[in-house]
Nucleic acid binder design. Structure first.
Length: 1114
RNA sequence: GGGGGAGUAGCUCAGUUGGUUAGAGCAGCCGUCUUAUACACGGCCGGUCCCUGGUUCGAGCCCAGGCUCCCCUACCA
């Protein structure tokens, strides 16, 4: 017997019960064991940053991951089920700093790097545990660590990293120091999620970098880079885009007096006043026109095209020259007296090192007239482009800032001041010196640190890069083999070609990035992260890149003992000293840590133990599938994986990549706590339930953004409730009837067309859903499921209800068996999308009555093959026609104001093509549903119908061309000649039988409904007999209403008295009593509930009361 | 600045190789059905398919130009 089902499900507590059930029964472990020997399907998880609780946007992506893994598990495929955590880098550092109240790198160094790094690890373990719990709540099946165990390791690490601990692994207990156990997380002996801070992950990146170095691609660059003064590190190109924000800056116009033209000045414009301290030149466009203007007593030079925007008030143009005339003019700089400037200029230029340099005008192709004055202030130490220009001209370079953004010595009163606070003193200085012209406020997009939000400055620094290779000025297909072999970027592009990108534009976008990207800056002047294995000799300047811990141990000349027992992180790894291979002197590691995308990019190798277990690696590489949110990943995770796999293997690390867009709040804006539109994952899970969330996500188009919120969740829930209601209906009546599945159920081929139809639909659903899910198309799959739920509820069940409540024998058993099978099939098809709801249904419908069945829906196979014999497409097509006929007739009833309760004598029906598969049964079904006594089929010859010709335009359009309007008009008018052989002549054109359809159309003046050759006519005449029967139905409905008012149970019997009933209606009373489980009392009202019904034959009064159990009263 | 995507009902979105009358859900209005006991179902209302031109017998769809929004990307002071 099935367990009773609440009519209104409380989804959230049910989900918790299911989680508990899976835990108790070890369902996930059973699934893994069951598929262990199956064909492999390799999913590679993109690591989630273990730095905060996961958000609802993570749940979107994680639902895809879970859906496809569950789906492939139902296909019997073996999987690795390994989640990943991204652990190293500035993300974590910034939060640890915040917790400690630190504001700069000096605070960290004072605190101690070892302790700081330990806190970073602890933070990762804290949030890995938290995200693990949240993922489990989502229903995400992975080989999860025990969150409590992760927290225990964190606490042990905090107490004493060197203490020895033992943890349980899949192959038995593992004993090691706490620090090393943490460093071995995710390894085979420990199992669970991979952590990018693991020893193996770091070691394989060393191997990758050494390989790059072997090919000569690693170099140290000296350049002016975007720099975050708070974090004290350069920001790479990969990180820049995320940090552009609108910002108000000073727009400062300054005069540079010309040395050789007294009384005249250049006007320059800048939004970064602090860079004026380091000005060395003023650039003009050689081909632009420049003018000298008089404003009051002053005389200025500026570009002609900027006159309107750059000058306020009246001016007079005195002179005009091309920019090339200005080149070479000397001018007085804004801060000529500063010692740093004097010192830098004293060395002269590269061309003339003997003479001190003086400020001068130079030509630059980049100068335009869109902004400012058309004369650009050039400070090579403060801007990347300025640096390139300065270097090419051999100009002096002044670098004013230290790594915290503090002015260095040599800048007078500015020295020691923070770059963010110097605008006012600089403006003040310029006013005093008579150089100030104008100050306004400019709102523009300016780069900010993507982690801490601080506005970036530009700073001259040394950073380490991987060369991405030359960009050739020719199309890819024209490149020679040698050119490709020389340039890494083109090699990556070839790998990109071999990958399936969903959606397709991802392919072009990745290629675009690869073509335009600069060399990969891999260094960060920070503390927590990959220790870059670059050893630069202070003596001879050469450097070496080590390929792993093993090589480090071999080459160590001192300090190895201080690293032993520690993970390869700062500060301990820095203790190891090696000998320079060139000069033999002691050489140390550069202090920089690595770009965190190295950490995530290596996972196709590290998590598959590329070096340690090559056979294992070969079984799972490349991954069949990866998925991640698009924004950012083309230049981050996708890129890093592609680059690293290309270097190491020159092949793709994954076969298919699926990207999805961005999640916003319901108001269309990004979610922000301070805006009050954010929804936390935990809140969403406990209020809407995760199945609702999962349905919402999986039914949304991945390439569009999702607007996530409570209203969207309500819509999703409504769909799921329909499914629930069908299930609840089934269980209610199965329990009342005592039906359970068994061998006595009639075979499918003996069941009604309705039964065979819904089973065919279920078979079709399974096949189509499997096809779509196999193609990573969850939207299409959920649409198919949704349509099926609709068919099941509004067509199958609505029309079959009586068979469950009032049926008997084989027909009833067939109905129960059919609905049972349909719901179970639906549950199995939907299980990957809605793991909780389907589990609930499956457990009750299958496990309750079949102890031999798998204990979970997730242990069953995808049901396509099992159901395929039930497919009957001809029946499905015929049913669609019948359904349309019912819809048309209902519309007619509505317009004629005839309730379905009122029986009608006749319905005339013309069918497209004149026939229908399983005609008789479907016609009976139509009659029943529409409450008509007879359905009469009519053909072409009927007086109700005339034959119309529908011209099949797609077939004949090309042939007919300009004759179409005439043909169509004639066809509309009915001016057609239908010949015996099926051909048709319209407007003098002969159309073949396959070029037209002959449709039945209503003759004008008849009350009918029609659609595509299907035509329905209702006989609206009501005889006394029909009226009486309608009244009886009305009476019955009133009694049922009254039962409901009285709060009676479905199977309660009643005593019923009816008063004032017309004789014609009274004849139907017996039937009414049967339907309402009533025992008629003729003598007097029975007390209890009372109501009056307005019938066609006049009002009647009913009274009813629950009948006590026992023998008949009268 | 360059590249890509989008613009369809009040809202969220479908719309097939170009085919006659452009659809769904939600919202609104009006009904219907009730032994799935407020669970649902149906109908109506609602459209300058962003604008202008072109190709075509025929354009939401193809082409050109313009407008607006989003994304990616970029060295603009």
């Amino acid at each position: 017997m099935f367990q009773p089902v609440p009519p209104r499900p409380d989804l959230v507590p049910m989900e918790h019960e299911t989680l508990e059930f899976w835990r108790e029964r070890g369902t996930f472990a059973a699934l893994r064991a069951q598929n262990e020997r199956g064909p492999k399907w390799s999913f590679l998880d993109g690591p989630i940053t273990a730095n905060n609780p996961m958000g609802v946007h993570h749940a979107w992506g994680r639902t895809y991951k879970d859906l496809y893994q569950r789906f492939h598990a139902m296909l019997g495929e073996a999987q690795r089920w390994q989640n990943g955590f991204d652990c190293q880098g500035l993300w974590v550092e910034v939060n640890v700093e915040r917790d400690l109240g630190f504001t700069s790198k000096r605070d960290i160094e004072a605190y101690g790097i070892a302790q700081f790094v330990s806190l970073c690890k602890q933070r990762v373990l804290t949030y890995a545990a938290r995200q693990t719990e949240q993922s489990i709540r989502l229903g995400y099946w992975m080989d999860w660590n025990d969150p409590d165990e992760l927290r225990r390791l964190r606490d042990l690490l905090a107490a004493d990293a060197a203490q020895v601990a033992t943890v349980d692994g899949p192959r038995g207990p593992v004993t090691d120091t706490v620090e090393m156990i943490v460093g071995r997380l995710g390894m085979p002996e420990l199992g669970g999620s991979y952590f990018t801070f693991s020893n193996e992950n770091n070691d394989l990146i060393w191997g990758f970098l050494a390989e790059c170095h072997r090919r000569g691609w690693i170099y140290k660059g000296h350049d002016t880079m975007p720099w975050c003064a708070r974090c004290g590190t350069g920001i790479s190109q990969h990180e820049m885009t995320e940090g552009y924000q609108d910002r108000d800056d000073p727009g400062l116009t300054v005069r540079f007096p010309l040395v050789d033209r007294p009384g005249e000045s250049l006007l320059i414009w800048t939004t970064t006043p602090w860079t004026l301290t380091s000005n060395v030149a003023a650039a003009v466009g050689a081909d632009l026109r420049y003018v000298r203007v008089r404003v009051g007593d002053d005389s200025f030079w500026l570009a002609k095209g900027t006159l309107k925007s750059a000058l306020e008030g009246r001016h007079e143009v005195l002179e005009e020259r091309p920019g090339s005339d200005l080149v070479g003019w000397r001018y007085e700089g804004p801060f000529d007296d500063l010692p740093a400037v004097v010192e830098a200029f004293a060395k002269g230029t590269r061309v003339h090192p003997e003479a001190p340099y003086e400020h001068r005008v130079v030509a630059w192709t980049e100068v335009g007239e869109e902004e400012g004055t058309g004369i650009v202030h050039v400070a090579p130490g403060c801007g990347a482009e300025d640096y390139a220009l300065g270097t090419s001209l051999g100009l002096p370079i002044i670098a004013p800032l230290d790594e915290s953004g503090i002015f260095l010595d040599g800048f007078g009163s500015l020295s020691g001041r923070d770059v963010r606070d110097v605008t006012d003193p600089i403006v003040e200085h310029l006013r005093h010196a008579g150089r100030f012209q104008r100050l306004e406020t400019i709102r523009h997009r300016y780069p900010h640190c993507w982690r801490c939000g601080t506005a970036l400055v530009f700073r001259l620094v040394d950073e380490w890069y991987i060369s991405m290779g030359e960009v050739y000025d020719q199309p890819r297909e024209a490149l020679t083999r040698e050119q490709v072999d020389r340039s890494l970027r083109y090699q990556i592009m070839e790998v990109v070609d071999s990958i399936r990108w969903i959606p397709g534009f991802g392919y072009e976008r990745e290629l675009d990035w690869l073509l335009n990207m600069h060399d990969w800056m891999i260094s960060k002047k920070r503390y927590w992260g990959l220790a870059l294995p670059i050893y630069e000799c202070a003596t001879c300047g050469t450097f070496d890149v080590l390929g792993g811990q093993e090589e480090l141990r071999e080459r160590a000349v001192s300090g190895w003992d201080r690293l032993a027992g520690h993970t390869p992180h700062r500060p301990y790894v820095d203790e190891v000293v090696i000998a320079c291979q060139t000069c033999g002197r002691e050489t140390r590691r550069i202090p920089d840590v690595g770009n965190p995308w190295l950490d995530a990019g290596i996972v196709p190798f590290s998590t598959l133990h590329y070096r340690e277990e090559p056979e294992y690696w070969a079984q799972w590489f490349p991954a069949d599938f990866v998925t991640e949110s698009f924004p950012g990943q083309f230049r981050n995770w996708f890129y890093a994986m592609l680059a690293m796999s290309t270097v190491l293997r020159r092949e793709a690390p994954f076969k298919t990549i699926f990207g999805y867009a961005t999640l916003f709040a319901e108001d269309g804006r990004a979610m922000h706590k301070s805006w009050g539109n954010a929804i936390e994952f935990d809140e969403a899970a406990e209020r809407m339930g995760v199945d609702v969330m999962r349905w919402l996500y999986m039914s949304s188009r991945p390439d569009d953004n999702i607007l996530f919120g409570w209203h969207a969740a309500d819509d999703a829930r409504r769909r799921l409730l329909i499914l629930w209601n069908v299930y609840a209906f089934f269980v209610t009546y199965a329990r009342l009837t005592g039906w359970t599945p068994g061998p006595e159920d009639p075979p499918v081929e003996e069941r009604s067309p309705m039964d065979r139809w819904i089973l065919s639909r279920a078979a079709g659903l399974a096949a189509a859903a499997q096809d779509r899910l196999g193609d990573y198309d969850a939207v299409a799959a959920t649409r198919l499921i949704d349509t099926f739920i609709d068919d099941l509820s509004t067509w199958y069940l609505r029309l079959s209800r009586k068979r469950f409540s009032r049926g008997s024998g084989a027909d009833q058993a067939g109905a129960f068996a059919t609905l049972h099978a349909a719901i179970v099939a639906l549950a199995r098809v939907t299980a990957p999308v809605l793991p909780f709801l389907t589990e609930e249904i499956y457990r009750n419908l299958i496990v309750e009555t079949d102890p031999t069945a798998p204990h979970s829906v997730h242990l069953t196979s995808y049901p396509t093959a099992e159901l395929s014999p039930l497919r009957d497409e001809a029946l499905e097509a015929a049913m669609a026609t019948a359904r349309r006929a019912v819809d048309l007739a209902r519309t007619l009833r509505g317009t004629a104001n005839l309730k379905v309760r009122q029986p009608l004598a006749r319905l005339w029906l013309a069918l497209p093509g004149g026939d229908l598969h399983e005609l008789e049964a479907l016609v009976a079904l139509i009659a029943e549903e529409l409450n008509v006594r007879h359905v009469e089929l009519i053909g072409d010859e009927s007086s109700l119908v005339e034959r119309r010709v529908k011209v099949l335009l797609p077939k004949v359009g090309r042939r007919l061309g300009s004759a179409i309007p005439a043909v169509m008009a004639a066809a509309r008018d009915g001016a057609v000649d239908i010949r015996a052989d099926g051909t048709v002549v319209i407007a003098g054109v002969v159309l073949g039988a396959d070029e037209v359809e002959i449709l039945a159309m209503p003759r004008p003046g008849t009350v009918v409904a029609h659609d595509e050759g299907l035509l329905v006519v209702l006989d609206t005449e009501l005889t006394p007999d029909l009226r009486a029967e309608g009244d009886a139905r009305e009476l019955q409905r009133a009694i049922q209403d009254l039962r409901k008012d009285a709060g009676l149970e479905l199977d309660d019997r009643i005593l019923l008295h009816v008063e004032g009933l017309a004789r014609a209606v009274a004849g139907h009373l017996g039937g009414v009593a049967d339907e309402t489980l009533a025992e008629l009392v003729s003598s007097s009202p029975v007390g209890g509930r009372r109501a009056t019904v307005e019938l066609e034959a006049g009002p009647a009064t009913i009274t009813l009361a629950r009948r006590p159990p026992g023998p008949r009263v009268s």
